[in-house]
């Protein structure tokens, strides 16, 4: 019961955030709202019994990416966004696809259903044999680190590559700091 109430409250807040992000034009406020949106998503993950994902969402989504967005605003010096014109075909397409997704979601198996197709394959093996095969009580760690170790290696490589790319683009440490002040990047929003 308490789960249902929590879910409804959190989803309502989430909807409010999403709509206000759409309508707000002040970019700093928008970045802060994005952070709050992530925090609410983290709370939802917690209600869904996925604390591992909630951790990541709270630390990366709320903390680091919000600060990165604010830093980007400080670099570009843009603080307001112009009100865009409404593009009718795009609006129609989005409504159509969104409506279709809602209709399809009615066919999804209920939350925690043992008979759902997702739990019939390897997931069953992980849940039943995970502890005795890996000796790790936390099934999420067992799957990520042991059963799906190769996937996680790929993930780490993706993060590493992302970091290398950012450093190649922005990582000019102590290269004549006076130059960049003169040619401060100005991007006008069109």
């Amino acid at each position: 019961m308490i789960d249902v109430v929590l879910n409804i409250v959190l989803l309502l807040f989430l909807l409010t955030m999403a709509v206000s992000i759409l309508f707000i034009r002040h970019l700093m406020a928008m970045a802060m709202l994005f952070g709050l949106y992530s925090l609410l998503t983290a709370a939802l993950f917690l209600v869904l019994d996925a604390p591992d994902v909630a951790f990541t969402e709270a630390a990366v989504g709320t903390g680091i990416s919000t600060v990165l967005m604010l830093a980007t605003l400080a670099i570009t010096g843009i603080h307001k966004e112009k009100r865009p014109k409404i593009h009718l075909p795009a609006l129609l397409l989005c409504t159509l696809v969104g409506g279709l997704l809602v209709v399809i979601s009615l066919d999804l198996p209920p939350l925690g259903d043992e008979q759902s197709p997702a739990l019939q394959g390897v997931a069953k093996h992980y849940l039943e044999k995970g502890k005795e095969e890996t000796g790790v009580p936390n099934v999420v760690t067992a799957v990520l680190a042991s059963y799906r170790g190769f996937d996680t290696l790929g993930e780490v490589a993706v993060i590493f590559t992302g970091g290398v790319c950012v450093l190649m683009l922005l990582g000019h440490w102590r290269q004549k700091p006076s130059v960049k002040v003169k040619n401060k990047i100005r991007i006008t929003s069109r």
Binding site: V67, A71, I75, I159, G162, G163, G171
Partner: peptide, 17 residues
């Protein structure tokens, strides 16, 4: 890797901003 990559990315942003 995750800790140092994220910190490095933020250093780069902080340097420019």
């Amino acid at each position: 890797t995750v800790a140092s990559t994220l910190t490095l990315i933020f250093y780069a942003f902080a340097h420019w901003s």
